[in-house]
Each structure stands twice: as C-alpha cells, then as structure tokens.
Nucleic acid binder design. Structure first.
Lengths: 161, 161
DNA sequence: CGATCATAGTTAGGTAGCCTAACAGTTAGG
DNA sequence: CCTAACTGTTAGGCTACCTAACTATGATCG
C-alpha cells in the first residue's frame, strides 16, 4: 500500500479537512482574544519571553532577556514587526529593553513583574473560557482531541525548519 | 467522578494545550496563505459563497446569491467588513453584486466564473502544501489527527450559537 | 590600523482586515 | 401616513503585519 505520495487521495482529503478545521478555528481564537485585556500578538510575545527566560528570580543571572531578532524568529514575524510590538509592551510597562553588555548593537528584552502578572491573568481567563467550551464535549471527544494535540504540535514544529 | 466542572484540572490542562496548539497553528496558516494569489479572508468568503450557492448552473434559479448580512454572519465579521471584502472581490472580477428583486434594500452576492476558478485553484495549491507537510507524519499520527477533526468541528460549531 | 562588509535594531511609509458611528434608502406597522 | 426597524454603504480609526532605507556597532583582512 502506497502512502505519503503527494497525490494520495486520503492524504489530500486529510489536508483539506485539517485546513478547514483551522480556518474555522480562527473564529474560536478571535472569540478567546476578544476579552480585551491583551491582544493575541502581545500575549504571544509575552508568553514567549516568559518561556525563554531562565526563570531565575536572580536578576544577576547571565545574559537575561531575549534579543529582538530572536523574538522575531520565534514569533514568525520580521524584525521591524517585533520592534513595534516590543515598544508597545514597553510603553505598557510589561517589558523592558536593556542594552546587551557583550554586544552594543543588540537589545535584550525581558518581562517586568507587571508583564508576568498580565500573562498569567490573560492565560487564566482564556483557559477558563476554552475549558467552558470543551466541557460540553463527550469524554471520547476530549480523548480524541487530547490524542491529536501532540500530532498538531509535531506539525507545527516542522515549520521551524 | 466529577467531570465538566469548570475547575476540573484535566479540562483546564486540555484547554491550555489546545489553545497552545491553535496559537502555534497561526504560523502554519500564515505559511499556507503566503502563496499570494488570494488572501485568507478573501478565500474564506469565496468558499462560503460557493458553498451557499445552490450550485445550479441554471442562472434562472430562484434567489441566487447571498445577502451581505448573511455573509457577515457566516464569516463572523460585522457588515461593514463584509462590504469591504465584497467590493474588493467585485473589483477583482471574482464576485458580482446584484439587487435583490424582492427587497430593494438587500444585495445579493454571487461568484463569477473567475471566482469559482480562483477558489478551486487556491484550495488545490494550499491542500497540496498541507498534504506535503502531513506526509511526514506516521500513519498513527494521521489517524489521531483525522479522529480529532470532527471534534474540532463540533467545538467550532458551538460558536455559531 | 583602517577600509570594508556584515549584523542588529529602528524609523518611515504602506497594506489588509477588522471595528464603531453616522448615514441613506426601503419596508412594515400602528 | 409616519414612524420605527432593517439593509447596506461611507467615513474614520486601530492593530499587526510588511519592505526599504537608515544608524550604529562588530568583524575581517590586507
């Protein structure tokens, strides 16, 4: 049995259905992001900064913060777009820009305390809304969804390359 | 055993993981839409028009086309946003606006031949790219994904209410 | 060493897609 | 009729992205 052929009908059908599911999910994401406290783009960046941070409360830890170019790469946007968002976060008091001691061209971006709190609160609220939606599913449905999430994660990971 | 409680830890974790998957999928969607021939919003609208059409080649069929308000509702946007997109599609020769004979306030939007062709070609290309990505998955992964798509469909359907 | 080239980020200007508010025309009800 | 409700467009504004051009620093090499 031949699989993985580019023209395999089953594969194309799966591709179509997955695209369709993602397309409709846009509305879901929009609904979740409509709570206003933080835009999707800003929450994404804050979360990324949080994950990238060594999470050491020790402020003397080496090379803290993430460089602008790295942020852009992580978020899949161009550097000027990242700069723009960073400036907004900075003005909102959620992030800080500091010069990189080892390279004066570079800029290190870190979360502030307020940024950390904002990310936690925004995620909590969105997760609660999503949990409410998921609560109407059957146990089998939830199991199927849970089983697919790692797969979707692998799909998304292939894009990094 | 209590399930579906808003504070159920498993449910919240699933919500978090699903949100995370959707968040990352944005890049995937962006990649798919980057082929340039048609924006995501425009393709969505064209596809909606295609699905809503009676699909009768007979141009004398009753009440052809979709009203602007209905389009907006189907796409989850406000009426002015729909109008804006429709005008763009019209200018591109992909859609047509006609007065509704039974209500002079209303406008009926239909696909042109070019619009139909554009939707087919854009979908084909995107599906092929997606199929290429999916082809690197294992059979088990594809099965898990396929099993979850109806669930995601149900989740998205709950938003219509 | 110093000219040159590469790299990091910002600034400037533009586009797409969404929104609300205000408007014009049409229909329906009291 | 005349007012209230509805349909769609116009006007103006916002966010988030982009490319191109610029500044400043670092790295290479003759």
């Amino acid at each position: 049995m031949i699989v993985n052929e580019p023209s395999d009908p089953g594969l194309l059908a799966l591709a179509r259905d997955f695209r369709e599911a993602l397309r409709h999910s846009i509305y879901l994401v929009r609904r979740l992001d409509a709570d206003g406290e933080l835009s999707a783009a800003q929450l994404s960046m804050l979360k990324m900064l949080m994950d990238a941070a060594p999470a050491t409360a020790d402020s003397a830890s080496s090379a803290s913060g993430v460089r602008v170019g790295e942020i852009a790469r992580n978020l899949g946007v161009k550097v000027p777009s990242a700069t723009e968002q960073i400036i907004k976060l900075e003005r909102a008091g959620l992030a800080r820009r500091e010069p990189d001691p080892s390279d004066s061209r570079a800029v290190r971006v870190t979360l502030t305390e307020a940024g950390l709190a904002a990310v936690a609160s925004a995620n909590e609220r969105r997760n609660a809304v999503m949990a409410g939606i998921l609560s109407s599913l059957s146990d089998d449905d939830r199991a199927a969804l849970a089983a697919a999430l790692p797969v979707i994660g692998r799909i998304n990971a292939t894009l990094q390359a």
